[in-house]
Simulated assay, not measured.
Amino acid sequence: MNRLTQRFVRTGRAPRPVPEEDLEGVAIMLGNILADWSQRAAASVARDRANGHRPPATAEITRSLTKAVTSFRDENMIGPIAKYARVYRELRVPVVPDGKGRFGRLDVVVWLPGVPDLVVEIDSRPNPASAQKLTFARDAGAYPLWVRFGAGSIEKIDGVTVLDIRDAVRGVCEAGA
């Protein structure tokens, strides 16, 4: 059982909600990391397309974004506690999304000592299973962030911040065209 799950199960009660302004601050930091990612990715895609390659597929964009998010602990934005941070990918949580036969997995969880976990889901389209996992993370006292980069509407969920990077990803995919 991971720490996020333990905290929720052990206490048997909902944790104190994370203040909205704290969540927005973390979202801004992650947004800055993803803005840097989009600049580097656009330059790379433009070079590739100049050599006759096609634009990146959705799966390639998702992998690249996941790698950028996991670099969160390596950035200077979180200061001296960064060396104590732990990053988990595909962390299993006790949430069985509708229509699924197994527990859900969170795309990225960043654990920092003394502060709530940062939980990030990355999706190219609306995904009800992600909404359920992020709601669980919110209720367990984490900072839930939903990175959205593709088609479809973006749903607002109380206590979950959505980073809409559709324009940035569109720019990356169109670079060098």
Rank of each mutant, 00 (worst) to 15 (best):
L4T: 12
Q6T: 09
R7W: 11
R13F: 13
V18H: 05
G31D: 03
G31Q: 03
G31N: 05
W37V: 07
W37C: 07
S38K: 00
A42S: 12
R47K: 12
P55W: 05
P56F: 11
A57I: 14
A68D: 04
V69H: 13
D74S: 12
E75S: 15
I78C: 11
G79T: 02
G79Y: 01
P80D: 00
I81W: 06
K83V: 12
R86T: 09
R86Q: 14
V93R: 06
V93F: 04
D98G: 10
F103A: 05
G104N: 06
R105G: 00
R105N: 09
L112A: 10
P113L: 13
V115D: 00
L118K: 02
L118S: 12
V119E: 05
V120N: 04
V120P: 07
E121C: 07
S124G: 15
P126R: 04
A129R: 11
A129Q: 00
K133E: 03
L134V: 10
Y143T: 10
P144N: 10
V147D: 14
R148H: 14
F149E: 10
G150S: 05
G152V: 12
G152W: 05
S153F: 07
G159T: 08
V162Y: 12
L163T: 13
D164K: 01
D167M: 01
V169R: 00
V169G: 06
R170Y: 11
A175W: 10
A177F: 15
